[in-house]
Write a protein that binds this DNA or RNA. Structure first.
Length: 203
DNA sequence: GGCCAGGTGTAAA
DNA sequence: TTTACACATGGC
């Protein structure tokens, strides 16, 4: 039985649902430190707003998010998100869609992890977020196949955990926090203080 | 200087 | 249906 014994409160730092959705795009294959720089710059010119981002030149948007990397494609992706966000009636409108996940996935630049991050952290929908860390840890523990697909991994967690937004949030946060420090890509978890069966995850 | 980071889309094999 | 590659910055 899997259980998050402890976890971070409010692990995804953001002042609003919209900011979280922007962060979900910016953090794609990118260190969160770089994302913070980009968000700080957006806030500094009061541009962390859907209409504002649509009104400014795309070149200007690229400049502002530059530190987060992939700035050309991310600027385009952010604008698609902004249009969608306003058309649907902001987060409440998106939440009320018959299938919000499918609608998000239909936007270019939003894949399963980005969509699920938005659903869980910005919209409060109980979907488990599978990321590279999750795949790595659980594969090393021998609990899931290394080549499992996104939906296979997600189904695994949905089957193991109570369908609870806070639990999903905390558990995912815990996985990321742990993996960042001890479950690196190259050196296997050799100096992980939690040992090979990782009691933070298994109980 | 190389590796890595809270992925996604596209185009070959 | 799988695999490879482009996209880009900044910290260690």
């Amino acid at each position: 039985m899997l259980l998050a014994a402890y976890g971070q409160q409010h692990w995804w730092p953001a002042d609003s649902a919209f900011e979280m959705m922007v962060g979900a795009i910016l953090t794609q294959n990118t260190n969160w430190q770089n994302v913070e720089k980009a968000i700080t710059q957006l806030k500094a010119v009061d541009a962390l707003d859907a209409q504002t981002m649509l009104d400014m030149d795309e070149a200007r948007l690229r400049e502002l998010i530059h530190p987060s990397g992939f700035f050309r494609q991310k600027a385009a992706r952010l604008r698609l998100l902004c249009s969608f966000y306003l058309e649907q009636g902001r987060e409440q409108g998106i939440k009320n869609l018959p299938d919000a996940r499918a609608s998000l996935l239909s936007l270019n630049g939003i894949g399963p992890e980005t969509a699920d991050s938005m659903l869980l952290y910005a919209l409060g929908t109980p979907v488990f977020v599978v990321d590279a860390y999750t795949r790595r840890i659980f594969a090393r523990l021998g609990l899931t196949a290394a080549d499992a697909t996104y939906s296979e991994l997600q189904e695994y967690f949905h089957a193991q955990l109570d369908k609870d937004v806070s639990l999903y949030k905390e558990f995912h946060a815990l996985i990321v926090q742990h993996a960042k420090h001890y479950c690196r890509v190259k050196p296997l978890c050799t100096h992980c203080p939690l040992g090979p069966s990782c009691p933070a995850i298994i109980s």
